[in-house]
């Protein structure tokens, strides 16, 4: 009977639900939202990429060695692991802003997989190029040293 009267009383009460799109629901100040990136502070150690569990961060590299940061909000799980791993305070940080929905036009899954593979490939290309240049330089140095040594020996004999 008590329950019945309580139920009847509920008819005159305000609804407990919030009208979501028009009214903001509860959100704490330190909500785990989008990951932000400050390029001027980054030291390009790529530690955030190494620790990221779903692989939502990747760095690509052009032939001059300049790195670019890529981030996918739909792959990200907002675990803050990248922020904890970052050795430079403020280079990568977490905002309280919730991620917007992904649209079909963005091609967020396949596009990201392609971008990820390309970024890794670009780094490998750069590394190979660097190695090649280093090898060339080493060979040139060696040749120069041999020539110098030969010249020195020639001087001695002469």
């Amino acid at each position: 009977m008590k329950t019945f009267f309580k139920a009847l009383g509920n008819v005159f009460k305000k609804p407990v639900t919030t009208k979501y799109p028009f009214e903001q629901t509860y959100k704490p100040d330190d909500y785990r939202g989008l990951i932000g990136f400050e390029e001027s502070l980054c030291i390009w150690c790529r530690r955030c990429e190494a620790v990221c569990p779903p692989g939502a961060i990747v760095f690509s590299q052009d032939m001059e060695g300049k790195q670019t940061y890529h981030y996918n909000r739909a792959v990200c799980i907002y675990c803050t692991e990248c922020v904890r791993a970052c050795p430079k305070e403020g280079a990568i940080f977490q905002t309280a802003e919730p991620a917007p929905c992904a649209l079909k036009e963005e091609n967020i899954n396949n596009g990201w997989n392609k971008l990820f593979a390309e970024a890794i490939e670009s780094r490998e290309l750069y590394a190979a190029e660097k190695k090649k240049k280093a090898a060339e330089k080493a060979a040139a140095d060696k040749a120069a040293a041999v020539a110098k040594k030969a010249a020195e020996e020639g001087n001695k004999e002469g």
Binding site: P28, D30, I77, T80
Partner: peptide, 11 residues
């Protein structure tokens, strides 16, 4: 959500 920053996946 206030403690962990998310409603379901606390991490």
């Amino acid at each position: 959500e206030a403690v962990c920053g998310n409603r379901i996946q606390y991490d």
